[in-house]
Amino acid sequence: MIPSHATFEGTWPYSPHYSEVAGFRQHYVDEGPRDAEYTLVLLHGEPTWGYLWRHLIAPLARNHRVVVPDHMGFGKSATPSGRRYLAGEHIDNLEKLLVRELDVKNVILVLHDWGGPIGTGFALRYPDRVAGLFATNTVLPLGMPGYDDLIRANFLESAWFRWVAAAEANGTLEQVLGNAGSTVTHLMLALQTIRRPEVMTPTWVQAYASHFVGRAECEGVIRFPQQLVVPVDGALPLDAEAVAAVRSKPAMLAEGMGDTALLPRYVVPAFRMAYPDAPVIELPEAGHFPQEDAPGTLLALLQLFLAGCVAGAAAR
């Protein structure tokens, strides 16, 4: 894992916090006033860590509490052995951090990539703690009719998932992702798409590659995509009451239209299945990582969403 003191030349100035409640050393950022009306929980995906949100944390923390966990096996969190690194485990870890360790309420979930399924899983367990969902280049699996068909079509066309399936079939997936310290930036640029390659400075590369110092530290980055092509335990049916509660929350999708991993022509209708009246904002200048390609625009949209949540709460 990345050393706790690492700031990457001041681009990551946030104080580290650690929790052991989930059975491993989990890093998280906790900025802003503890008595704020909302706690924003910013969840990253594959193959990133909290550094992805670096441009948004400080401005959001002026008025809100901002919690940014690193998933098990990423960033400044440990990569414990003997874990399966399946999505359900990451949901368990998030639950333990947010409920048992921090006991946060009135949560706005800010979700990217695998952060979408993980955050959705948390919301389904604790809808009473969730006040809204802001999604960007991710999916929210809420069991809507037709959702699986869209995800399957994305899997067949996406450059990222076509590579995952081919690499798993020919036995190179673990080799490539097991060397993520050398391959991570290529994966982000070429297979998922960053529209502004000029952001990829030596410091940036070091920030995203530093966790993956050897094969043992790459278990998380391997298992996120691998579980989609290797059969795992079947998911339990979703609770209809919990789904209805989550669908009743305010939601917004900000979609980088140049995404070659989660293709907008499938992700946008998948979101609208669950939230037909929620705003969907297209970001033509962004790829899979709007936090890198259009951080100012993403921040403005999130602040607009938060203002709407505040106004809606005041009206109720």
Rank of each mutant, 00 (worst) to 15 (best):
I2K: 04
E9F: 07
Y14S: 07
S15M: 10
P16R: 11
H17G: 02
H17K: 03
V21Y: 01
R25A: 07
R25G: 01
H27E: 11
H27A: 07
H27L: 10
V29R: 06
E31Q: 07
E31M: 05
E31C: 01
R34G: 14
E37L: 06
L40N: 01
V41I: 04
P47R: 11
P47D: 08
T48S: 15
A58N: 02
A58C: 00
A61F: 03
R65T: 12
R65A: 05
R65I: 14
D70C: 04
D70S: 04
H71E: 14
M72H: 09
G73R: 10
F74N: 04
G75I: 08
P80I: 08
G82L: 07
G82V: 08
R84C: 12
Y85C: 10
L86E: 14
A87K: 13
A87Q: 13
L94W: 02
L97H: 02
L98S: 01
L102G: 11
N106E: 15
I108N: 00
I108A: 02
H112T: 06
W114V: 09
I118W: 11
G121P: 09
Y126C: 10
P127Q: 12
N137D: 14
L140N: 06
G143D: 01
G143H: 01
M144N: 04
M144Y: 01
D148G: 05
D148F: 07
D149P: 00
A153D: 13
L156S: 10
S158V: 05
S158I: 05
A159W: 05
W160E: 01
N170L: 01
Q175D: 07
Q175V: 09
G178M: 05
N179Q: 13
V184D: 00
M188L: 15
L191K: 05
Q192K: 12
Q192G: 03
T193R: 15
T193C: 14
I194P: 02
R195C: 15
P197E: 15
E198A: 13
V199R: 09
M200K: 08
T203L: 08
Q206H: 15
Y208A: 09
S210I: 05
H211L: 06
F212L: 09
E219G: 10
I222Q: 08
I222T: 10
R223F: 02
R223H: 12
Q227N: 03
V229Q: 00
D233A: 14
G234N: 12
A235W: 04
L236P: 06
P237Q: 06
V246R: 06
V246N: 04
R247H: 06
R247M: 12
S248I: 02
M252I: 13
M252G: 02
A254H: 12
G258H: 05
A261I: 03
R265E: 07
Y266L: 09
A270V: 08
A274G: 00
P276K: 08
A278E: 06
P279K: 06
V280H: 06
P284V: 02
E285W: 06
A286E: 05
H288C: 04
D293S: 07
A294G: 00
A294Y: 01
G296P: 10
L301W: 05
L301P: 01
L302T: 03
L304T: 15
C309Y: 00
G312M: 11
G312L: 09
A313L: 08
